[in-house]
Design a protein around this nucleic acid. Sequence first.
DNA 1: CTGTTAGCGCTTTCAA
DNA 2: TTGAAAGCGCTAACAG
Lengths: 323, 323
Amino acid sequence: MANIKDVAAKANVSVGTVSRVLAKNETVGKELRELVEATIRELNFRPNGVARGLRRSRTDMIGLVIPDITNPFFAELAKHVEAIASRAGLSVLLSITNDDPKIERAQIDSLLKSYPTGLIVVPTQYGASKGWSSDVATVAVDRRCAGFPLISVNHYRGAGLAAVHLMSLGHERIAYIAGSVDAPVAGERRAGFLNTLASAGARCEVVEGHFDYASGETLGRLLLDRPAHERPTAIATASDQQAIGLLRAASDLELKVPDDVSIIGFDDIPLASLVTPRLTTISQPVEQIAARAVAATTGSDGVPLQDEFFEATLVVRGSTKQL
Amino acid sequence: MANIKDVAAKANVSVGTVSRVLAKNETVGKELRELVEATIRELNFRPNGVARGLRRSRTDMIGLVIPDITNPFFAELAKHVEAIASRAGLSVLLSITNDDPKIERAQIDSLLKSYPTGLIVVPTQYGASKGWSSDVATVAVDRRCAGFPLISVNHYRGAGLAAVHLMSLGHERIAYIAGSVDAPVAGERRAGFLNTLASAGARCEVVEGHFDYASGETLGRLLLDRPAHERPTAIATASDQQAIGLLRAASDLELKVPDDVSIIGFDDIPLASLVTPRLTTISQPVEQIAARAVAATTGSDGVPLQDEFFEATLVVRGSTKQL
DNA sequence: CTGTTAGCGCTTTCAA
DNA sequence: TTGAAAGCGCTAACAG
């Protein structure tokens, strides 16, 4: 593989000149520039990113730390982060923490060895992630993390949207399948849903589990396997995965959605529009979130020195109906 | 941030000695080793991976190139690759090609700038990816790519398993929802299914689409929206996503699965066991594939100089039944 | 067993 | 506008 010296030698210029044409914005004479560019193509020269990184104490990479890539919401986030970073000439270093703070810590230490330009982290759900000392630009996404700026949807207001929707449909026997009490995000969504209901004088039964399919199914069975007059007419969940599990529970119990029970999820994962019936849900602007997160780490845009929240939107599909 | 020189100075040894204790396998006196280790902890020294990478012309990273991270199968693959690589002290650089050869090419060129230890690539589905010149250890996963060793499930035999299962259940009016003709993997699965059927004298109607939910739904409707005596009693699909779309089509047409029609998928994505009814499918040993792929790039194991195939297994759940 | 030292390929002063 | 040269932090000879 040719290096910058080979190019310089072949073009009869100094390495400094080659470096300057690589940097594009420098002041190099037109003739020399063209000569160097031709030589670069001729030798098929690709600058060594590692050497560049060493010299600048910063590589063209951003670290992306997420709990679980098989979670459709995080997969979607990763997809957009990768696309946007890529367009900005940055590679993405992926770390998966499995929601384990120990692993998270190790992964971040490991990432830092590569001197990335920035770090985008969705911290583990439980137990405050302690901040790590580092001078790389860091943002938290979706969940709060130490003292780093947070970029996220407004979970509280998003859940409020779901409550309003259900009430507007005339439901009064409403239940909520929450995420774990220990998870702040679950807490916000739950509070947003319950407070909105409460301020309208409505009541709500709450059960609590995790943000996954299985939890939605188990808890759903608990809520639905009772006589019709004791059964909620509408159930909201803290995640689409729970809602999809809930759909399965309803189906097992031979209950029709939305005729026997209305269901509303949260996140709007791709699958939400493909299940039967199509899921009414609260949609997060994932791409915007990803864009802001990348911008924050590169400082390209107006860097957010502080938190930034996006509004969720209600997507009405087939799983909710007028009582 | 402290560097190796700081450690050497503080411990009153040479940088060479520090480097040797970092490398672990070197010959360093016990006392010195312990002194250096203590100093490292004391200064919270973390070796600079970039400098190390420059010196060795190889970083502790592997590149993972996949078409789409929101595809549950690839997400699963990424998860295992990350976990295994991580255990081996390797970070993973993630690239998403969106199944576009142009992007794939650009992404790989970009990855190579980081001088990764290895490259694991699931090439784009259509159009042969031309090989790229490079001395980094490269393996193709799931789909063939240029002259690189391929690590994959045996698609042909896996699909054969599905055919045998359906026949053993007494089905004779069988249909197959295939992937795109242009995609070699789709071709193998289709051939495996059809040939197995044919060699038993069974016939099969084939429709063709893509490996996604929407395709399964559309094509499913085509197959199922007809009088009972013209309708297939069993349908196999080239992917679980198609099968799940098909489930939705059946439900829309008020057809019961598996009573009115048996359905079998391929891949065994996590969702397969959560839909209603739970999906009978062909399971890929994703973790084994990931493990071999990582091993191949690190040369840790007996490096496969040639292709390596794993057998798929039949997972019988609730979506197929005796005719 | 330990110290010294020459780079890895690049960017970035500093001079000319 | 261009060239020369000093490292970035580390590893791997080579010497002792």
